[in-house]
Amino acid sequence: MDPLDPPSIPAPIAQAQGLVKRYDGRTVVDHIDLTVQPGECFGLLGPNGAGKTTTLRMLLGLTPPDEGALSVLGEPIPERAREARRRLGIVPQFDTLDPDFTVRENLHTYADYFGLKGRARRQRVEDLLRFASLESRRDAPISALSGGMKRRLTLARALINQPELVVLDEPTTGLDPQARHHIWQCLRGLLKSGTALILTTHYMEEAERLCDRLAIIDRGRVVAQDSPQSLIRTHIEPHVLELDGPTAMAWLDAQTGDLPARLWRMGDLALLYTLQAAPLTAALEQAGIRYLHRPANLEDVFMKLTGHELRD
């Protein structure tokens, strides 16, 4: 390579700059900047109503932004959203499977929307039935499927065009652990084959396991954007002590202000965030208080950045 060449930075697969969306004068997406690199799994976390779905809808050209610039797969959005959608897959927050069709017919019809024909279409439909482990339910009506099966079919449908990017809005909400692991398995397979993912989730474990980078959004703003590990490292103390019950609370109340930790308390539950656990655990042991000592995780970061109060 010519040493004078600038280092090649891969073009982002999706990019939003200063994205704004208002509904009835209320700003629900408030100057969001996002960059998603090819092949990466990018997560959007945020409380209910934070603006995740609205952001994705703008990204997909399903609603025009009020301000800001957007490009997905090199196409300006919303001007060329249709061309972008030709090359991406969508798993919406709420299933939009066609109840007038069986499992197989759903895939078949969706392939038709993408212009797939003949042998290629039949082959793709068969491959995806296998991918979603729905071969034995191929002729079942949608109403006969479990929640997990519907979600798998929706994911399979999103892959009909072998997309370069798949956008998933809460892909595993409402699923049992087995079904969730199955979807994770599928998503890991996609990442391995180089497909980029943008996903929203309320499950911190899901985000920690799958996402290379994620943005935490709250009230339409990005409050942090980084890898899960960096977010934990930079935004929160590494040790967490969980206390609960009246004895523990009484002990806490007796501590006069010099606790070497950040305290969060609700009712009979308290979380102590600290840089050094040893002095606290020693004190707790001495007082005979039961506690749980664990490393800080993404949920702690999320709660710290978005607050503990209920949303919506």
Binding site: L60, L62, R82, E83, R85, R86, I90, P92, F94, D95, T96, L97, D98, P99, D100, Y110, Y113, F114, G115, A158
Partner: peptide, 14 residues
């Protein structure tokens, strides 16, 4: 009711 159109809008249809 059926959200059939929403499904279509996920494909390259306007």
């Amino acid at each position: 009711e059926q959200k059939t159109w929403d499904g279509m809008l996920g494909a390259p249809l306007n």
